[in-house]
């Protein structure tokens, strides 16, 4: 079942084209990794799907609802972690998550139930009553992920969910994503190529607003030779890196 679909999505800021005709669909059970250099258009694409930006042309759909024409229905089914995980610094973790749960239409019984589950799975119990501005970067990111998951949405869009986390925390977040992925469509953006190999069922490489590749991580790895330029045997994520560099460095001809 297709849960996220973009059709020839275009976004221009003045004369700059940030997203240039991106079309793909993500089905239930898929975890798609968005890869690309900084400024490639990953975050802009995510913002277009979430409905924070309006597309110049094309459309994005969440569970069949156009995220621009029918935003409320689309967003009810979406959990979104914006870039940098912005949070209200003056609120406590508990008050913030209760606010988001309420705004996402959960009644108080369901809110309690979901928050209890999330405290457990994201380990927020020890900071529940702390103000958000007093949290470490790792905890802030986890609160950001928690707010995206609070209503158990069908679609999760996470912009750099593991940025700023230490290796243990990164591992936990990846485990978490894997454990909930079964009947959801999940899109994550990342710079870390080993992350794609670890959690994603599919990778989409974007540069200069265009899609350059859309395949499973294994397929992408198979496209590069087993030995690197230095003649040494290369492991999976290093080969993925070779491939990434090869296709994002050369200018794309229209």
């Amino acid at each position: 079942m297709v849960l996220v679909e973009t059709r020839a999505l275009v976004k221009r800021f003045g004369s700059f084209t940030a997203v240039d005709g991106i079309s793909f669909s993500v089905g239930s059970g898929e975890v798609v990794g968005f890869l690309g250099p900084n400024g490639a258009g990953k975050s802009t694409t995510m913002r277009l799907i979430a409905g924070f930006l309006e597309p110049t042309a094309g459309s994005a759909h969440i569970c069949g609802h156009d995220s621009h024409a029918d935003p409320v229905s689309a967003r009810l089914r979406l959990g979104y972690l914006p870039e940098g995980a912005p949070l209200y610094p003056d609120m406590s973790v508990g008050a913030f998550l209760e606010f988001v749960a309420g705004m996402r239409g959960l009644d108080s019984a369901r809110t309690r139930e979901r928050l209890a589950e999330i405290v457990e799975s994201i380990e927020l119990g020890s900071v529940w009553n702390r103000r958000i501005d007093a949290l470490s970067k790792g905890y802030k990111r986890r609160v950001g992920i928690a707010q995206a998951m609070v209503h158990d949405p069908d679609v999760l869009i996470l912009d750099e969910p593991t940025d700023g986390l230490d290796p243990n925390q990164k591992h936990e977040v990846r485990e978490l994503i894997r454990s909930i992925a079964a009947n959801k469509a999940i899109i994550i953006s990342t710079h870390i190529l080993e992350e794609v190999e670890a959690v994603c069922t599919r990778a989409i490489i974007i540069a200069r607003g265009r899609m350059l590749a859309d395949a499973t991580p294994a397929e992408l790895i198979a496209k590069t030779p087993e030995t690197g330029p230095d003649g040494m045997a290369r492991s999976g994520s290093l080969r993925l890196e070779d491939y990434f560099r090869e296709i994002t460095r050369t200018p794309v001809e229209a």
Binding site: V72, S73, Y80
Partner: peptide, 14 residues
């Protein structure tokens, strides 16, 4: 300034 507008404006409310 803080970016929370992105959070607020993607909540499922008018």
């Amino acid at each position: 300034r803080s970016g929370t507008i992105e959070l607020l404006m993607t909540l499922p409310v008018s």
